[in-house]
Design a protein around this nucleic acid. Structure first.
Lengths: 221, 221
DNA sequence: GAATTTATTATCCAACTGTATAATTGCAAA
DNA sequence: TTTGCAATTATACAGTTGGATAATAAATTC
């Protein structure tokens, strides 16, 4: 009865690595099986540790959940902004194109991210912290988009900008959701191309050819 | 100690009514608190009956879940198609406008429906039946949209129609999601107006004025 | 080699899950 | 009124699972 005797061997890791591992494990599980799949035991198993360790780094499972969700969401917007800032500061059209394009390739559009988004989407209703995270990251993205639209070289019209930002944001959301959910339903780069075309059409502008992904090799249709 | 004595009084109802009540209760709970909130007991309580009754009308809770999801999803597409068919058969533009507009008012765009959609969105990954329901209703909607687009009076171009259907569908999805999630974030009719404008712009057409919702009273901005 | 703290282990305990069955009541026909 | 059936309630059950915790062992550090 009392022959534990062999104890699981383990390595000691830095706090940061362990926290990241646990967060990554939680995200993966949520993406795969929804929030209810991310139990303390499952998270620990996925991260290659034992359940007790979670409470060594997080005061509760809830805290881990919040940390994971925040990290995913903030990383997403941050990546889009980063790509946008990589474009010439004096070329609003190129900046907008870069922002949109970044939203449709990894690490923003991946089944993992979309899965996390979908899995947690519902928790915002009852959990105030989740709601705050969702709201701030969501509005952060949309605000950024609206800024980029307002910077376009054309007569100012704030009301129009708002409407167009809402429409573009919705188009991006919808495509991102589809593309991330059914990655096999589209040719490589197809979703991004549709998104760029759609945003350009909605705004009455044209994006330069180099804003688009490289054409699929082999065929020149 | 043994004085239960008073038994809950009840009414006898027809099978149809009870089934509908149970389905409605399940949907409401899912919309409010996600799938895990829709326990047998909670559903029964919400429907005003006792848990055992569920298994009198459904072989299992799973069966009730499937019935509820199917009903919500099918009703949604059916309503949009119904509105579309109410338009003149020989006016493709009006038919498309009616289809889009119907997607942005009750009973299609309501917090309940969006909540159910969000709550169950994730179950499609593991549960084959849920997946089938989701897929068929989703594709049904998109196919219908693509047919309406293909029927527009302009040179035929199937590839373009496909791209545009994907884009329009994404725009509609995104707006529907936003409008249903944050009904207070928009003025009455605003989401529908943005959707109609957006779809028209994406397709390079114009919808007649009477396709739009009545302007908000009081102000003529 | 001692001290420190990461990590493991084992367990707790409770809440709750869906299901099955038995007892009772409402209701309508006879 | 009485009878009988089916709708509904009530209770029981068997199992899972949940997150939390205290004590202990092993890495690493000094």
């Amino acid at each position: 009865m009392d022959s534990p005797a062999l104890r699981r061997p383990y390595r000691r890791e830095g706090e940061e690595k362990r926290r990241d591992d646990l967060i990554a494990a939680a995200m993966t599980l949520v993406a795969e099986g929804g929030p209810e799949a991310a139990t303390v035991r499952a998270i620990a198993a996925r991260a290659g540790v034992t359940p007790g360790l979670i409470r060594h780094y997080f005061q509760s499972k809830e805290e881990l959940t919040h940390a994971a969700y925040r990290q995913v969401m903030e990383a997403m917007t941050a990546e889009a902004i980063r790509a946008c800032d990589a474009a010439p500061a004096d070329d609003p059209v190129a900046r907008l194109a870069a922002f949109v394009a970044a939203s449709f390739r990894p690490p923003v559009m991946t089944p993992l991210i979309v899965g996390v988004w979908a899995g947690y989407m519902h928790l915002g209703r009852n959990d105030p912290v989740m709601h705050e995270i969702h709201e701030s990251t969501y509005l952060g993205y949309r605000d950024q988009l609206q800024h980029l639209i307002a910077a376009l070289p054309r007569p100012a019209d704030p009301a129009r900008d708002r409407r167009e930002a809402i429409a573009c944001n919705a188009l991006i959301d919808g495509l991102w959701l589809e593309g991330g959910s059914l990655p096999d339903g589209f040719a490589p780069g197809e979703v991004m191309r549709i998104a760029l075309d759609g945003v350009a059409t909605l705004l009455g502008i044209r994006f330069p050819a180099d804003a688009y992904p490289a054409p699929s090799p082999g065929k020149t249709d």
